[in-house]
Amino acid sequence: MTVNLTRIYTRLGDGGETHLGDMSRVPKTDPRIEAYGTVDELNAQLGVTLAAGGLPAPYEAWLKRIQNDLFDVGADISVPEGGPRERLRVIPEQTAWLETACDEANAQLPALKSFVLPGGTLAAAQLHVCRTVCRRAERRVLACGDAVNAETVRYLNRLSDLLFILSRGVNLSAGADEPLWEPGRYR
């Protein structure tokens, strides 16, 4: 599949509407636009994470793969189910890959003794930002109702789990203390 963009501005959205992937027009406040806009924001935050450095090599490769997959997620969300043409959809194998990555990364970590506070290294803190944006993207997809591919929800749910695990792994690999919640410590 080739994408050819010859002109970036079109003026078609100047009135507050935009096209979905099936060329139907919707307001820019449509739940689908909110959903794939948040997926786009997540992808940008992953780009910041990669640019900042401090990631183990396997994590960097995984995040680059995820960035590409997130364009698949956005494409999936942008086109309502049905219609005469076959569309790009997130498939269970993409979610299964995330589960394998979760298992592989988590196997290297000590058991949790408390909730983890975002922090430690810059890379770990940025992965927590990505995790929270991912959770918001999941909520935005759910707000679209039954008219979206349920696999996108599963994918985003698993991705937020992986981002949490990677944040822990980054701190461990850097020798940083894992910041843990201490209930009532400052009461």
Rank of each mutant, 00 (worst) to 15 (best):
M1N: 11
V3G: 12
N4F: 15
L5C: 01
Y9F: 07
Y9G: 06
T10C: 05
T10R: 03
R11L: 00
L12I: 00
T18S: 06
H19G: 01
D22A: 09
S24Q: 12
S24I: 07
S24E: 05
V26I: 11
V26Y: 10
T29D: 14
P31W: 07
I33D: 03
E34K: 06
A35I: 11
G37D: 00
G37A: 06
G37H: 01
T38R: 02
V39G: 05
D40W: 00
D40K: 05
N43Q: 12
A44V: 12
Q45T: 04
L46E: 01
T49C: 15
L50D: 04
A52M: 15
A52K: 02
A52P: 00
G53F: 03
G53Q: 08
G53K: 07
G54C: 12
P56C: 13
P56H: 10
A57F: 09
E60Y: 04
E60G: 15
L63I: 14
L63E: 03
L63H: 05
K64D: 02
K64E: 06
K64P: 00
R65I: 00
R65M: 02
Q67Y: 08
N68V: 00
N68Q: 12
L70S: 07
F71L: 04
F71Q: 11
F71R: 02
F71S: 06
D72Q: 02
D72V: 15
V73M: 00
G74F: 03
A75T: 09
D76L: 03
I77L: 07
I77F: 01
S78K: 05
S78C: 09
V79Q: 10
G83Q: 14
G83P: 14
R85W: 13
R85T: 12
E86S: 15
R87N: 13
R87W: 08
L88E: 13
R89A: 15
V90T: 04
I91A: 13
E93G: 07
Q94F: 10
T95I: 02
C102A: 13
D103R: 09
L109Q: 11
P110N: 01
P110D: 08
A111S: 08
A111C: 07
K113I: 15
K113C: 13
K113M: 10
L117C: 13
L117P: 09
P118G: 09
G119C: 10
A123F: 05
A125Y: 12
H128N: 12
C130H: 01
C130A: 15
C130E: 01
T132I: 03
V133Q: 09
C134E: 10
C134N: 00
C134K: 01
C134S: 11
A137D: 00
E138Y: 07
R139A: 08
L142G: 02
A143C: 10
C144D: 07
E151G: 06
T152R: 01
V153H: 07
V153I: 15
R154I: 00
R154N: 05
Y155G: 02
Y155I: 01
N157H: 01
R158A: 11
S160M: 11
I165Q: 08
L166P: 04
L166D: 01
G169L: 14
G169V: 13
G169F: 13
N171V: 02
A176S: 15
D177Y: 05
D177V: 10
E178W: 12
P179Q: 11
L180A: 13
E182V: 14
E182W: 03
E182A: 15
E182C: 06
G184N: 11
G184I: 03
R187C: 08
R187N: 09
